[in-house]
Design a protein around this nucleic acid. Structure first.
Length: 393
RNA sequence: GGGGGUGCGCCGGAGUUGGAGAGCCGGGCCAGACUGUAAAUCUGGUGUCUAUGACUGAAUAGGUUCGAUUCCUAUCACCCCCA
């Protein structure tokens, strides 16, 4: 049994009516309470926000990516600079993705494109091949070839030094049949074991390893995969791969996984960050989330607002030209305390970077306030009531 | 005052050797997409109307011609040169 001396997960409060729970994860870089949201700093930076901003909006943890940092600046450079925490001046908990998602995204394009059938996508795949050994990519930066194996992904993540690291997996697409999904899942399981062995080989207690559940949208495969991942000595579990074409299917897939996952480990849902998805999946027992959406849509001028349609407003829209009200009257972030919708609208139109930055800060604070609300509700044993009121169901 | 040149879309270009423009490329404008980030990206729309079709449209007014954005005349605006 592998020990994770620098780490601990404890459930502080279990909701009595649902699987929602409040937990505490301890890491060498500090603790965080769950449910929580992990902001994506894919290339060792939250686009448009720095560590001070993260502290200001009360972010507990961020994520960075093996594949992108492998291409540039390279894991050796980051190790030489004292590790990723020091390099990017973030001293809190951190997770790195293994590059498994890039096996999907560099092969198929975005999630939406793949699910919608790649209709008009101009996506040119830079994924060269997937074999039992690993995945080979052509760098989008300089065209050079790079192979990511379970072993090399762990080795790179060790050099990066994040607190939580992930096994290499194949993020299975939506448009493959059950046979492919099953074979992909089984290969990901073998990759999980290889990742674990490589992790264990140089284990120093400063990092912890997450196993990833695959199995597409198939209940039996998801159950098998989650039981497999539970049988290995991972610190935490992540749910990955295709979660279906619709939200209802995603919630079903999460339910399938939960049947096979042991409950004394933190459970992460990879890549999900829709506002309603967070409530629905916390209810199903998910502890942590990550998603590019809050920061990406901010760069595309959308602000997260609880009471808006689909929980968001497009500040680029003409209707905000003369709107002197704060961005979100419910929010305590520096953007909402200081700036009007009209000003942000103007900044976006004028292509002033500050406009994007103000929205990024607000959207991030929106997410941390959301998980604060959720945790408080669970602690007070009012999760379902709060969910209903918050979502105006 | 004299000479030369240029005028079409909200703006800037390109193009039309007298043979069907609601019509190319940017930008702007109006919207949309985005879920482990090749994304400050990408997509659609953008004359009018009673809208599967019509109508108007190449500075303005005339003229030549089967046919004019194209040729001619006048006017207007802007630019350049001379005085």
């Amino acid at each position: 049994m592998l020990a994770y001396p620098g780490f601990r997960f404890e459930v502080l409060k279990q909701d009595t009516k649902t699987k929602a729970r409040v937990g505490r994860v301890s890491t060498p870089h500090g603790d965080l309470e769950t449910p929580n949201f992990i902001f994506c700093a894919t290339k060792a930076a939250i686009k448009g926000a720095g560590p001070d901003d993260l502290k200001a909006i009360k972010s507990d943890i961020i994520l960075s990516n093996t594949y992108h940092l492998l291409l540039r600046p390279g894991p050796d450079l980051i190790e030489k600079m004292g590790g990723l925490h020091k390099f990017m001046a973030w001293d809190g908990p951190m997770l790195t993705d293994s590059g498994g998602f890039q096996i999907f995204s560099l092969g198929h394009g975005s999630v939406a494109e793949e699910i919608k059938g790649n209709r008009q996508s101009k996506h040119v795949s830079t994924l060269r091949k997937i074999t039992e050994q690993g995945a080979t990519f052509k760098s989008y930066i300089d065209g050079s070839m790079h192979t990511l194996t379970p072993e090399s992904s762990i080795e790179i993540q060790r050099k990066l030094g994040a607190d939580f690291i992930l096994v290499l997996d194949e993020c299975t697409p939506f448009h493959v049949d059950k046979k492919y999904t099953e074979q992909s899942m089984e290969m990901s399981h073998r990759w999980a074991d290889r990742s674990f062995e490589e992790f264990e080989r140089k284990h120093d207690g400063k990092q912890s390893l997450y196993g990833i559940v695959q199995g597409g949208v198939y209940p039996d495969l998801r159950l098998r995969s989650s039981e497999f991942i539970s049988s290995r000595d991972f610190f935490g579990h992540a749910i990955g791969g295709s979660l279906g074409a619709e939200k209802s299917q995603m919630y079903d897939v999460v339910d399938y996984c939960m049947e096979g996952l042991v409950s004394n480990r933190p459970i992460h849902l990879l890549g999900i960050g829709g506002i309603d998805d967070i409530w629905e999946n916390v209810m199903r027992g998910v502890d942590t989330f990550d998603c590019v959406s809050p920061t990406r849509i901010a760069r595309h001028a959308w602000a997260l607002i609880r009471t808006a349609e689909n929980f968001r407003l497009n500040l680029k829209n003409a209707q905000y030209k003369e709107d002197d009200s704060p961005l979100d009257p419910e929010c305590d972030c520096s953007t909402c305390q200081n700036f009007s919708r009209a000003y942000i609208h103007y900044l976006i139109r004028a292509k002033e970077l500050l406009g994007i930055r103000l929205l990024i800060i607000h959207n991030m604070r929106f997410m941390t306030r959301l998980v604060e609300t959720i945790r408080a509700a669970i602690k007070e044993d009012r999760f379902l009531e709060t969910k209903k009121a918050w979502l105006r169901e």
